[in-house]
């Protein structure tokens, strides 16, 4: 099996399908032609920039460039998590949890993977570190988004029950235990279902990529299993971190419920 390189002409051919979708939008008057065009353009620009940046980082082989790229991911993660919330913590807190929890958890899992499992030389070799880190953060981010959303909305909805417990002398951890547990459970659901259906319903993206790139399916499968385990670990750590931090932020040192620290956000149209 060999790797088939795509030419710009091949990409243009694939874009024909996009024109078909736009045609449908016109035919049914969905009014989505503009969005389709801008989203497609955005995707091309983003992927193009990332592709060339990664190439530069790989060729430079510099730890500084690798760290720089990782930091860029951190910023994007923080923004993404915070912007997907219905209610956000006042100030920068949402960005801090949204960025820190997935990034820290992802970094731990990734460093563990490249040092103990893959053993790349040097350990920070960007060719291994960055794609794995990206997958870890991407999945942890989905979990953290769900945790924050579940906890902040449940705390708002169940204010009287939570304050009822606090009024009887419960600590913030007792009063918010149900909310926290529900948040953690929700945050872990996606990775659990992803593991359950992996290979049956969908071929995971990375495995597909490796197979297309000419790798042996069994080798690709091994990589995919490792990645799934890492993702589960990273998501678990990120979800628990985000859950605990949100309980602390939703309350204060006097164990009072502080919903005043949440500000509603208008969700952008997805």
């Amino acid at each position: 099996m060999t790797y088939v390189s795509l030419t710009p002409f091949d990409l243009a051919l694939a874009a024909l399908l996009l024109i078909l979708t736009s045609g449908l939008s016109l035919a049914f008057r969905l009014g989505l032609e503009r969005s389709i065009a801008t989203s497609a353009l955005r995707m091309c620009v983003q992927l193009g920039v990332v592709g060339f940046l990664l190439k530069l980082v790989f060729e430079s082989g510099s730890p500084l460039a690798t760290a720089g790229f990782a930091l860029m991911m951190l910023g994007a993660t923080a923004y993404e998590v915070a912007s997907r919330q219905e209610r956000r913590f006042q100030g920068l807190a949402s960005y801090l949890i949204g960025g820190a929890a997935p990034f820290l958890a992802g970094l731990i899992a990734t460093v563990f993977a490249v040092t103990a499992i893959i053993g790349s030389e040097p350990w920070w070799s960007p060719r291994f570190l960055l794609p794995i880190l990206g997958m870890m953060i991407g999945n942890a981010l989905a979990g953290v988004t769900l945790v924050l959303d579940t906890i902040t909305s449940a705390a708002t909805r169940e204010k009287s029950a939570i304050e009822g417990r606090l009024a009887l002398g419960a600590t913030r951890w007792d009063a918010l235990q149900d909310v926290l547990r529900r948040g953690l459970r929700t945050g872990l659901t996606p990775i659990l279902s992803a593991m359950a259906v992996a290979g049956v319903v969908s071929l995971p993206g990375m495995m597909t990529g490796q197979i297309l790139a000419g790798a042996d399916p069994v080798e690709a499968m091994k990589y995919q299993i490792m990645i799934m385990f890492l993702i589960a670990g990273a998501t678990g750590v990120a979800v628990v971190l985000a859950g605990l931090i949100s309980v602390v932020l939703l309350t204060d040192e006097r164990h009072r419920l502080r919903l005043d620290r949440l500000v509603p956000v208008n969700k952008p149209d997805a």
Partner: peptide, 18 residues
Amino acid sequence: GPQWRARVRYVAAESGWW
């Protein structure tokens, strides 16, 4: 806070249930 509220009990007009 929890120690204080164990001694000073607030009963809300709308009771909370969990």
